[in-house]
């Protein structure tokens, strides 16, 4: 479309659409940010306080220490990082096999893909019952395993698409040079795919970091993650605006930074490699 019209100026209607949409996107973020640094006295002022005269950090300390936000944060980090590592490892191996040997034909790859579209509510009840039976309920291991499986379709399909567009010739050269299959994969194939693996890892991490439903059901006092801490603000009507906002900031800043960093892989990530952006 770039060369469609030669006019240099952007029509006014476009500027209006874009400005309105930008305001729509930024308004909630701004309000959360302002609320997180607003003294409690400013909450109910009319007209609303658009920016506090005396910004404060008390809500952050309260959210982290009084509402166990810190433990949620630490749990989220442990669970998300471990699940990302595990999911990337087994996902990359599977993707390599699917791409290089067409293992299991289309059936296997689509079986993995279908997992992406299973409604979580359909799996969560039986998973919950089984976790209770074998003692994985409310444990970090249980959450790591659940998140690994729930992110596998993304990892496998992103890496599958990545390996397929990588030439085989270098790995084949390594085989001719006397490498084993295993050696050719570890020392040639996977290092060449490193950019794709990093991008997949970031998307998997964000998926784990932001997940709520599994954590809500499978954890309680021990392995609860950051998103589940927001439950604490539901029962008390009104007084915890600042704490909720502070916790929201703590949750959204890391994933936004990571997401924007891998922006150029976004289309591949969102469509599991189906569209190469």
């Amino acid at each position: 479309m770039a060369a469609w019209t030669r006019r240099r100026r952007i029509p006014v209607s476009r500027i209006v659409v874009l400005t309105l949409f930008l305001i729509f996107v930024l308004a909630p973020l701004y309000w959360v940010f302002v609320t997180s640094i607003k003294p409690s006295d400013d909450y109910l002022a009319v007209p609303p306080v658009w920016f506090p005269d005396h910004p404060t950090m008390v809500h952050f300390t309260a959210a982290l220490f009084d509402y166990r936000g810190l433990q949620g944060l630490v749990n989220s980090l442990i669970i998300s990082i471990s699940a990302t590592a595990l999911s990337c490892l087994v996902g990359t191996l599977m993707a390599y096999s699917l791409a290089r040997f067409n293992t299991g034909g289309q059936h296997l790859s689509f079986w993995v893909l279908s997992q992406r579209f299973l409604p979580p509510i359909a799996i969560i009840l039986p998973l919950f019952l089984n976790y209770r039976l074998i003692g994985l309920q409310d444990t970090h291991i249980g959450m790591i395993l659940a998140y690994t499986v729930f992110t596998l379709p993304v990892g496998v399909w992103m890496m599958y698409a990545y390996f397929r567009q990588m030439p085989r010739s270098l790995e084949e050269a390594a085989l001719v040079d006397g490498c084993t299959r295993w050696g050719a994969m570890w020392s040639v194939g996977i290092p060449l795919a490193a950019p794709g693996i990093v991008a997949a890892a970031v998307f998997i991490f964000i998926a784990c970091w932001t997940e709520f439903f599994f954590a809500l059901v499978l954890t309680s006092r021990n392995a609860f993650t950051l998103p589940t801490v927001f439950r604490s603000f539901l029962s008390f009507q009104g007084a915890q605006y600042g704490e909720a906002s502070a916790l929201a900031i703590v949750s959204l800043v890391p994933s936004i930074i990571l997401g924007v960093l891998v922006q150029k892989h976004l289309v591949r990530g969102l469509t599991l490699g189906a569209i190469r952006g």
Binding site: F21, V25, T210, S251, S255, G259
Partner: peptide, 12 residues
């Protein structure tokens, strides 16, 4: 800026 909402937890 426009893609930021995609990286935020639905709970948030």
């Amino acid at each position: 800026i426009l893609i930021v909402p995609l990286f935020i937890s639905p709970v948030v």
